[in-house]
Nucleic acid binder design. Structure first.
Lengths: 220, 220, 220, 220
DNA sequence: TATGAATGAGCATTCATTCAT
DNA sequence: CATGAATGAATGCTCATTCAT
């Protein structure tokens, strides 16, 4: 179990092993139920070394949050082509989001569940990342409105609320997609895109939002 | 601190006091960080009495979840008039939801955060309640589609995903509304209703969903 | 479970019910593992009543020891006809002993195991009874020696040791007989009688002690 | 009080110190009344270290039983010269037994009293050792019978009962010898040897079994 | 006579954290 | 760079015992 016991490796490498073990353990057991003993064993090192490098359980958890938050935001930003129209950007961003969370369930659990349930300090850490995502979505909404050149009367707070709702729906669907067998990241993205862009009213009237054909692998 | 030390009360009353204290403590500290000592003190009783009545930390937490889940579902169902059209029912349900969660932040924390992060047993308990809400929303969506007499091509799973997204967005907005000063339950409901019913596309094109005028307190 | 809940009985009767429950519980669970709760429930009364009548766990246990010790000594004394020769008396006494202990395993457990393992106070209580039995056996040995009119050179302490060994062997065989299926009280008595009276040397040389034919039910 | 606080010792040494303290505490207080706190303090270490090495109160007790059982059987077997005649072997074995139990009263208490009164698990552990002793005695009885070349008609179960009685008598006498000032292991062995080998009948008739003179230190 | 309500005190166990090497 | 040895401080839980009625 755990990493193979290879001795004497450079600090940076060891640290990553520890963070890997920590994310896995925190994600599966929860912050409080995860013991430093278990993390150290899973990382294949002795407990004092974990303390030497990461300082304390608190700091270790914070490091996990930061690493996973960065990874997630980079995945989303990296998945989006800023030259496309707003709805296409949203569609791509959602796809990247669902793909990343599906591939890193422990990291997502750390961010979405653990970090928000164990003290303001950690919650603030994720909140920062979340605000980045919300801001990104907010920009998309405003850009979309501009593109519709309707200069729609969307007040500041209203847009903030919409972005918040969209991100919240995405987070919720991520868990649903992970838990429902047969639902892919792409399908989750499509469902949410429909919901968010077309709205229930249009959907019921038979006017869904139409996803582009095979956007990722397409030539043009 | 804690309830006034009133002695010798009937069991039923004491049990409610204990549940009150437990919901508050679990909601604020988290399941693991909450100590039975703290709960007992807050309830104004000795620890053995808590164990005598509620059996174990596990059982106490389960009792909290059940009480809060029941309270929430009843608040939502009770806030809806089933004779109204679908969008109105949704509007009222969301209003009741945001109102209840705003008034019971600790209970909402127990359901939304704590119960989902500490073992399958507890998660399953909330999942049952959540499914009830999702089913409720699913019925509304189907009813709305029927009302639009368009027999829209909404496959089973698609509807489930939509309902999931809507509930998720609501849950997320509840936290946002609680945390953002000046955002009322009514405003949160309006934002979400706009988002869900009209969709971003329509919103950007200047066609929002229009809430009824002062539905609860209206003259005519 | 437990006695049928009949209310308002005279104190003496209730006390016996409590002692019955206590002996059973102490005998099976052990002194420390037995809880006053369990005893009260088994006795079909509330805990305060147990305290009202028997005062404390300590006192309750002492009462159990006394009752069982008295019952055992009376059974042994009552089973012996003092007009018979020494070996016959020993034979009858052993039979009564094995019969009683087989019929009251919980009481025997209280005396033989529990009382000796939980503090001097209790041990002294059984020691008193045991000394009575040892004294009885000592008298039999001296009487037997006199009957053999050999005025054998048996010093005081030697006789005490012999009696001690005999009683110890009996106690040990009682447990063995209870645990070994198919070994009756009579057989246990015969085995011990052989061992004690004839001795291994004689047994090996083919000269066992001969038990009388059907002593208890005999005509003459 | 307790061991001098010597820091940083190898695990094996600390474990023995802990077992020493545990045997003493269990032997004197009893299994349930002994607290891990007391044992740790007596061992001169902190409680967590006891748990780190010995795992649980249960396991600690089991370890005590095993250590003491092994020590006792080895003492008895080591005290016997198998080339001697049966009665001499028995005499030596009894001597070793009484000597060992007199020197390790706490260990003997653990085996004889505590282990038998606190759950089947522990009882089974001692029962194994006891059966070894009973088997040893059974062999001696059969060997003795063969030496008397009388091919005495001793049925299987009869011999088992005899051995059981002898061991039981020995166990009982061990307690008696420890509690009676002035009774040495040698005297206890002589008393039991008389009782067991010659039998009360022969003793009364003036034909005791004769112990060899100074067996351990004599030349021939 | 009898009990529902209540508690002080203690116990086994675990965990984050630190020396000394 | 790395660890075996060690602990202070909690925490969940139980039990004998007592009021107030």
């Amino acid at each position: 179990m755990g990493a193979v016991k290879t001795k004497r490796m450079p600090r940076a490498v060891r640290e990553q092993q520890m963070l890997d073990a920590a994310v896995q353990t925190f994600g599966q057991r929860g912050y409080m139920a995860a013991s430093m003993d278990e993390i150290a064993e899973l990382a294949g090192v002795s407990k004092p070394l974990v303390y030497l490098y990461l300082n304390s359980k608190d700091d270790l958890f914070t490091a996990c949050i930061r690493r996973e938050a960065t990874a997630l935001t980079e995945a989303v930003r990296g998945g989006v082509d800023p030259s496309l129209p707003a709805d296409r950007q949203l569609w791509e961003g959602l796809g990247a989001f669902f793909t990343h969370t599906a591939r890193n369930p422990d990291g997502w659990s750390v961010l979405h569940l653990q970090a928000r349930t164990h003290g303001e300090r950690f919650a603030a850490e994720v909140a920062a990342m979340r605000e980045e995502l919300v801001a990104f979505v907010t920009q998309l909404i405003l850009a979309g409105a501009r593109e519709a050149h309707h200069d729609p009367d969307l007040p500041e707070r209203e847009v903030a609320g919409l972005a918040e709702a969209l991100v919240g729906a995405a987070e919720s669907l991520a868990a649903w997609a992970n838990a429902t067998p047969g639902v892919t990241a792409r399908q989750a993205a499509a469902t949410l895109m429909n919901f968010a862009w077309a709205g229930l009213g249009d959907l019921m009237a038979g006017s869904p939002w139409t996803p582009p054909e095979e956007p990722e692998t397409q030539a043009g």
